[in-house]
Amino acid sequence: MSRIGETTLEIDLNALAHNYSYLKSMILPETKFLAVVKAFAYGSDMVAIAKKLESLGVDYFAVAYAKEGVLLRDAGIERPILVLHPQPAHLDCLIDRCLEPSLYSKNILNQFLKTAQQKKQEAYPVHIKFNTGLNRLGFGENEVDFILKELEQRSEVKIKSIFSHLAASEDPREKEFSKAQITSFEKIAERISQKLNYKTLRHIVNTSGIINYPEAQFEMVRSGIGLYGYGNDAEIDSKLKPIATLKTIISQIHHIKPNETVGYNRAYKSDRSKTTATLPLGHADGIGRQYGNGRGYVLIHGKKAPIIGNVCMDMIMVDIDGIDCKEGDEVLVFGQQNSAEVFASSANTISYEILTAISQRVKRIITGT
């Protein structure tokens, strides 16, 4: 019988420590390291990951929304936490929990200044986000004077960092574009530093940027996917260790006759006698319908078992012809073997998506120390 008895996501803290150490080795000793732990730490366990990284000496955390930062504060995390996409409705609790907002537009800047004034703040740390080409969030270069004018007479806030985001740092074909972004960011940062009587942190590189643009590490770097074991490059992937392993079990085995169908809409029709296994996970657990009908596969005793038919809400069916297995046996969906990147590529998507899609109803098991 399987050791697990149910669908689980194992999270290896030793692998996390390995990845952190590797990424730290790519930057200068004095460069600060910001760990991105948004989206439940890329689908793993935000609190366990943050506590481990804090013990390893990480300098900063980043989350997407204020409620994620609140979760970390409630768990006892003390390091500074940057909220990348704060919403006006959450600015009060953001200040109450000592979370640091990214100010990316005139609206959010003015809303935060108003809230900080109401709450009688002095020199509250904020981060100014600039858009240098991703065209997602951020002030434009032409808004530098506006920002400085708004802040020069205000004591409620103090700029902790100036940052931007590379659009294609993992793509060597976009090297010219990435370098142009870095140059644009340097010009913006220089204009601001000339007006301020204090120094700020600067950061623009993400995981792939750490690797491909080390000259742009400035005072701080950010890493998300790299911490979880993926580097957007096969060579880098070989030096990292996936921290998450998704496992399940065989619930039932069926012996299908020729011309019988499997699953909803009779999407799979057998051309011969076949043996299938039903597994207790489906699109409600993060395995989307795009993995069905022979595109995705799992490993049973090291052998590939293609997903057949449509993925159900709570179950998938796999072809186990030629695999010696029984009900209750362990099934590997992704992990160190059959990585999330490989699994995701079968459905023409990326590791980020499958990792962050794993439902919170899937039991998390923390391993390592």
Rank of each mutant, 00 (worst) to 15 (best):
I108P: 00
S105P: 04
Q153N: 15
L91C: 03
Y104M: 05
I147Q: 00
P125N: 07
Q111A: 10
I147S: 02
A123G: 00
E143N: 03
L134Y: 09
D96G: 06
C98K: 14
E122Y: 11
S155P: 07
I95T: 08
P125Q: 02
G140E: 10
R79K: 14
P80R: 09
K129W: 13
I95W: 05
F146W: 12
L84D: 04
K106S: 14
N110H: 10
L84I: 09
F146A: 07
R136D: 11
F146I: 09
G138Y: 05
T115F: 06
F139E: 02
V126M: 01
S155T: 13
H90L: 03
D92E: 15
I128D: 01
P125W: 06
K149T: 11
G140D: 10
Y104W: 15
V144A: 00
N142M: 10
H127F: 15
L148F: 07
Y124H: 03
V126E: 01
G133K: 01
Q118P: 04
P88I: 10
Q118R: 14
L109G: 00
F112M: 00
I108S: 00
C98W: 06
Y104E: 03
R154Y: 07
Q118S: 12
Y104P: 04
H90M: 10
N107W: 09
E150F: 05
F112C: 01
I128F: 02
I95H: 05
K106D: 13
F146Y: 15
E143K: 08
D92H: 13
Q118Y: 09
V83I: 13
K106L: 12
K119V: 09
Y124F: 06
R136C: 11
Q118F: 07
N110T: 11
D92A: 11
N131S: 05
F139T: 05
I81V: 14
T115V: 13
P125K: 04
A116F: 02
G138L: 05
F112V: 00
R136G: 08
L103W: 12
Y104F: 15
N131G: 07
Y104A: 05
H90D: 15
D145A: 12
G138K: 00
Q87I: 10
N131A: 01
V83M: 06
S155F: 05
L151P: 04
Q111N: 10
S102M: 12
F130Q: 00
Q153M: 13
L113W: 06
L137Y: 15
H90F: 09
R154S: 09
V83W: 08
K119H: 12
H85K: 10
E122F: 12
H127K: 07
L134D: 11
K120A: 13
K129S: 12
E100V: 11
Q87L: 06
N110W: 12
I128Q: 00
L137V: 14
C98Q: 15
E122L: 12
S155M: 09
L151W: 02
L99M: 08
L103P: 04
R97T: 01
L103E: 01
E150Q: 14
Q153K: 13
S102Y: 12
R97D: 07
L109T: 09
F139V: 07
S102K: 04
E143Y: 00
V126K: 00
L137H: 10
D145E: 14
K129M: 14
N135R: 04
R136S: 07
R136K: 13
